[in-house]
């Protein structure tokens, strides 16, 4: 029994690590509004929020985008990639989450560009510089997953995992929760993430960008939060 060097899953793990500096630690995507209103205050209420955020927002935006982008990369349909980059940005109506996501996308792109020699990363960067594209971490992540030959559903699953695990870290700091509670939520969400990834496989392109009113409102309201530890 040996470890196959053709399996590049470990390389994709590097991007999931909470130490991978994309700035995810400074975004709560509206969670901080709920914390300040005391609607999210413990493990159970945070888990409820995370459930809705994952299943009612993330799957229709980042998750479905990852699925579509992977396929577009397979087909070398780069116009589709840039189209999704624009759709992901303009469907994000709350300014803070939109701009925060763009910054994270750019930071991630700059980082992976020093790790991987891939023409598409350079092209993405150039398009952002020329204001033709915006930048999104789900797209950069999927580009790397595709490049490494990690299957599409695994790439999507790991992307969702990295987002959820950063949010758990943020909740541990902000609510605050104990580290053990945090790990319990990450464990609880393993099955939920697999189910979310399966749901994404069955979504139609027409489902793109569906938002949930309460979540979006909390993201808009965050702009007016005075004392804050997160940028969104």
């Amino acid at each position: 029994m040996g470890i196959a060097m053709t399996d590049h899953t470990l390389s994709l793990f590097q991007l999931c690590d909470s130490n991978f500096p994309t700035g995810a630690f400074s975004h709560s995507y509206g969670l901080e509004s709920y914390i300040q209103e005391d609607q999210v205050h413990d493990q159970a209420t945070f888990s409820e929020w995370l459930h809705v955020y994952l299943n009612e927002q993330l799957v229709y935006a980042d998750g479905l985008a990852s699925h579509i982008i992977y396929e577009a990369l397979e087909n070398e349909d780069f116009q589709k990639v840039w189209k999704i980059d624009r759709m992901l940005t303009v469907q994000n109506l709350p300014r803070e989450t939109r701009e925060g996501t763009q910054r994270m996308g750019e930071r991630m792109l700059n980082l992976v560009e020093s790790l991987y020699d891939m023409p598409i990363l350079l092209q993405y960067k150039k398009r952002i510089k020329e204001k033709q594209s915006f930048g999104h971490p789900a797209i950069v992540f999927t580009m790397i997953g595709h490049h490494l030959g990690v299957p599409q559903s695994t790439t999507t699953l790991y992307y969702l995992y990295s987002t959820v695990s950063s949010l758990v870290q943020n909740a541990v700091r902000a609510i605050p929760l104990g580290q053990t509670s945090g790990q319990k939520i990450i464990q609880e969400f393993q099955g939920i993430l697999v189910a979310a990834t399966e749901k994404i496989q069955n979504l139609d392109n027409e489902d793109f960008g569906i938002i949930s009113p309460g979540l979006e409102l909390s993201q808009m309201k965050h702009e007016r939060v005075n004392i804050r530890i997160f940028m969104s």
């Binding site: 999210v40 009612e56 759709m87 303009v90 469907q91 489902d207 569906i210 938002i211 309460g214």
Partner: peptide, 30 residues
């Protein structure tokens, strides 16, 4: 000719817990 805004609302009371946190949060009108 460039997409500048995309807004997609889909309320599904038949399958969603529509009154709950993250959805309509106790309100009925959007």
């Amino acid at each position: 000719d460039e997409l500048i805004s995309f807004d997609h609302i889909k309320l599904n009371p038949a399958t969603q817990n529509i009154e709950a946190l993250g959805f309509m949060e106790g309100f009925s009108h959007l």
